[in-house]
């Protein structure tokens, strides 16, 4: 199958009438995503693209349409509030695309979500796409993916597209392409994403796109080594990043000598996970270790 979401999962979009929200909601609909509602305060009663009903708040949208998941395109100052609202209204899956959410807001959100059994993806992420399910929750381009057996986890956006594009062109389709986000505190981290892929029987191989900062890749390496037996390859961005500088993503920073690309590469290779030197090497590397590749 795929992770987090099925073709029939009912999805709502918070911020559906905004510039980015509107643009990407249309693209999600065009891809075939089952968007059942939009939310923009003050726009209740209107429709989006003359078919998706808009509500003033998430509770109304859930009550009327049975929406189970929310995708958030709300500006940073309101994004944390939007996540709380989605969880309070009973959504069990929330994907927050917004970049620039204050970190303390994320810290406050997490226990609230845990108490309610809500999965959050993001913030500051491209979301995910399940090609076999025609489900796209976020901003990943639908035209570069294809259904297939490869799972992909990444901390970035366009770098992910680069690798996905190469996979698809090589005939390696995907179960789910997941961008977990570049912030220090994110709802679904590398490890949790790995566990989800581990539980998905359709995912036969994994690609992990990491970057400098933190030790998520190192922890992922440990988990894979002791728990998983499918082929995994990786790429780590930021070998040339100077220490102490935030490289765009709030979480992409080498601090006190930890979080370097070299450390991550060493940890992954020690766990038997090959690390590509260039994005273009990911596919050949995967084919090399994956004898049953389609």
């Amino acid at each position: 199958m795929a992770i987090f979401c099925r073709a029939e999962t009912k999805i709502l979009v918070q911020g559906i009438t905004g510039r980015d929200g509107g643009f990407h909601s249309k693209s999600m609909l065009d891809y075939g995503t089952n968007i059942v509602a939009g939310v923009t305060p003050g726009r209740g009663g209107q429709t989006f693209e003359s078919k998706v009903p808009i509500f003033d708040n998430v509770a109304d949208a859930v009550a009327e349409t049975g929406a189970e998941a929310s995708v958030i395109f709300v500006p940073p100052a309101g994004a944390a509030g939007a996540v709380f609202e989605a969880a309070a209204a009973g959504c069990k899956l929330v994907v927050c695309i917004t970049e620039g959410v204050p970190t303390i807001d994320m810290v406050k959100i997490m226990p609230y979500l845990e108490e309610r059994g809500v999965r959050l993806v993001g913030p500051n992420c491209p979301g995910f796409i399940n090609p076999g399910q025609k489900a796209k929750l976020g901003i990943m381009p639908g035209n570069i993916v294809a259904p297939g057996p490869v799972g992909l986890i990444s901390r970035s956006g366009t770098l992910t597209y680069e690798v996905v594009d190469a996979l698809t062109k090589a005939g390696l389709g995907q179960t789910t392409c997941l961008g977990i986000g570049g912030d220090p505190v994110i709802g679904t981290n590398f490890m949790e994403a790995l566990m989800a892929f581990h539980a998905d029987k359709e995912t036969k191989a994994l690609v992990m796109i990491g970057e400098i900062g933190g030790d998520a890749e190192e922890r992922a390496a440990d988990y894979i080594k002791s728990n998983m037996n499918i082929p995994v390859v990786s790429f780590i961005a930021g070998r040339t990043a100077p220490p102490g500088k935030r490289m765009g993503h709030a979480g992409a920073i080498v601090t006190g000598g930890t979080g370097t690309a070299a450390d991550k590469k060493a940890a992954l290779e020690a766990a038997g996970i090959p690390v590509a030197d260039r994005p273009v090497d990911v596919v050949p590397l995967l084919k090399e270790i994956w004898k049953e590749a389609p």
Binding site: L159, E211, G248
Partner: peptide
């Protein structure tokens, strides 16, 4: 994109050059 920007810098270094910036 930040990830692609880092990967581009790394690729410049891979081919023996030096990036001027991120």
């Amino acid at each position: 994109g930040a990830g692609l920007a880092m990967a581009t810098m790394d690729l410049v270094a891979y081919y023996g050059g030096m990036p001027a910036n991120f």
